[in-house]
């Protein structure tokens, strides 16, 4: 499912996949626009936006694509930062 990733000196990044990514390559200012625009909160009953992201799991660095996990229940949790207290 999640493919293993080499640990290199550049910090790996992920991001949205699909249509949003296509737009980003067509228009370099998209990232800026995304930051300024007030995006509506995503809605229940709607498809979860797909993305890829680098990850760490049990000693390995991996690359994760959300849609690879469709077919099972997924709990996606975001939090402010590692080593913060809560």
């Amino acid at each position: 499912m999640a493919e293993e990733m080499e640990a290199g000196c550049t910090r790996p990044t992920g991001g949205p996949t699909g249509e949003a990514q296509k737009q980003a390559t067509e228009d370099e200012t998209t990232t800026e626009t995304l930051q300024q625009e007030v995006k509506p909160m995503i809605q229940v009953g709607h498809k979860a936006p797909d993305f890829t992201a680098p990850g760490y799991q049990k000693g390995n660095f991996i690359n994760v694509k959300l849609s690879d996990y469709f077919g099972q229940w997924v709990l996606l949790c975001l939090y402010p930062g590692d080593f913060t207290f809560v």
Binding site: T13, G15, P16
Partner: peptide, 13 residues
């Protein structure tokens, strides 16, 4: 998996 969102692109999404 503990995922990394450097730059916050996914958080914004």
């Amino acid at each position: 998996p503990m995922l990394s969102d450097g730059g916050g692109q996914i958080g914004r999404l």
